[in-house]
Design a protein around this nucleic acid. Structure first.
Lengths: 249, 249
DNA sequence: AAACTGTCCACTGTCTGCAGTTGATGTATT
DNA sequence: AATACATCAACTGCAGACAGTGGACAGTTT
């Protein structure tokens, strides 16, 4: 049996997903990559045609993302990517600090040497990627590092919450990447965190994480101070309903 | 024009929801009320027949709840309510303490006298309900109180996270309400919290909240120590996939 | 010219039907 | 009797189609 390259293995895994799951990933990527911009509506029929499938899987994916808060829905008028306000940035990042600090507190006592090595390798990857300007790889490793800490906490609720936060953050920065933290600085900013973790000092680790997140927060906030000026900021969560059918029971 | 009672107004509001939204609420109620028990499978066709609708709205609701983690899905074999382990209890409650503490820190500086009165009235309702043994009303007010604090934080992420936690907690206690905290004690336990909030002392408020949640945590944990003994505890998140179709890119 | 009204189109929400898979039941084989 | 295999019913995943609504546009009125 001929060995297939890694991408094919991944591809085979993807192929086993239901169509609605594939659409969900497709849309999540569109959201977090900036291909879909705030205010953009999702045309179910058109998307279904584009993907070569029927509308049902599309609807399931879209409706699920709306339930999770990544899309807003206007009854009878479809779903769209909501707009972001400076307050959204503050909400996400302040909550993120809360969650990731908690993750560190739960993770650190459980961490073994191999885990510390893992994190160190991730930072190395970030630094290397930053040096050669591979930004995508840098941000990928960045995301993995933060998620890894949540995984190490062993708390499913924490990990789940982080998933949502991470998606929010990626959506926030997806379409305003005008000015980011310098890559190398961004990569090196994680060193104090893993060093503090390796030392076993919980409070120092939490402080380091908070400092790092506050820096990122400030960058994102600055972008929103500029880019969102004058735009209609508040998402239309209203919309008058209409029809009237009821389920039995 | 004849005035309709309040329930009709609510009913009219529900009627304006799409069928899938109605099913979603129906299922959430089934989950949190204990009508659906851990391990129970959801038969889409049967549920659709019961509700007198087609399978599509049912599928959308079910798939959304699965995406939010309230149901586990086994490809080609349907969705079911996952089983709960003692660790799930610990995960939920420790994270809940994290979130609600954070909510207090953000909410307290923003609270106005009217807000404190609001919370006080809720506790009064709880005590009154506890005295006359109206447990449903007690727990309802309890839930509203905790959510209200998250609302007062003004942080959408916090509120959203709390929604998930609250659902998890209700699912946890829905089918094991063998021994709960005595009603009156449960109601009175909230007094120190709102008193501390009224005094404006953040740290004391957080401590009071943590103490209260740890008490509840201990009660729920004790129930799981007993009831889940011997049962298959771990949810089946595995299941071998099969088919292979792909969306066009 | 502005506001109002009627018509039309695009899209969502829902329904019915079909194919493929899964798990179960029954049968044959050792 | 136990195991392997074939058969079958039930259910999920998906497709295609229809009805009703919302918004746009044009025509009419003041």
């Amino acid at each position: 049996m001929s060995r297939t390259p890694e991408t094919s293995a991944v591809q085979r895994l993807i192929d086993t997903l239901s169509l609605s799951d594939q659409v969900r990933h497709y849309l999540l990527d569109a959201l977090t990559s900036g291909r879909l911009r705030p205010g953009d509506r999702i045309n179910e029929a058109e998307l279904a045609r584009t993907l070569g499938i029927s509308r049902n899987p599309v609807r399931e994916a879209v409706s699920g993302l709306a339930q999770r808060g990544f899309l807003v829905s206007a009854p009878r008028r479809g779903h769209y990517l909501r707009r972001f306000t400076p307050q959204d940035v503050d909400d996400v990042f302040s909550f993120r600090i809360c969650v990731e600090s908690f993750a560190i507190r739960q993770a650190l006592p459980r961490m073994r040497p191999a885990d510390h090595d893992d994190l160190a390798r991730l930072v190395e990857r970030m630094v290397a990627a930053a040096r050669v300007g591979r930004l995508a790889e840098l941000h990928q490793a960045d995301m993995v590092l933060h998620r890894r800490i949540c995984e190490l906490s062993g708390n499913r609720q924490t990990l789940r919450a982080h998933e949502g936060i991470d998606t929010e953050v990626q959506m926030l920065i997806a379409y305003v990447d005008l000015e980011r933290e310098p890559p190398l600085q961004s990569a090196l900013a994680h060193l104090p965190i893993i060093e503090a973790l390796a030392s076993g000092d919980v409070e120092r680790s939490v402080s380091a994480m908070q400092h790092h997140l506050e820096t990122t927060w400030a960058f994102v906030h600055r972008m929103y101070g500029r880019t969102s000026r004058g735009e209609p900021l508040v998402a239309a969560e209203d919309a008058p309903p209409s029809q009237s059918r009821r389920i039995r029971e």
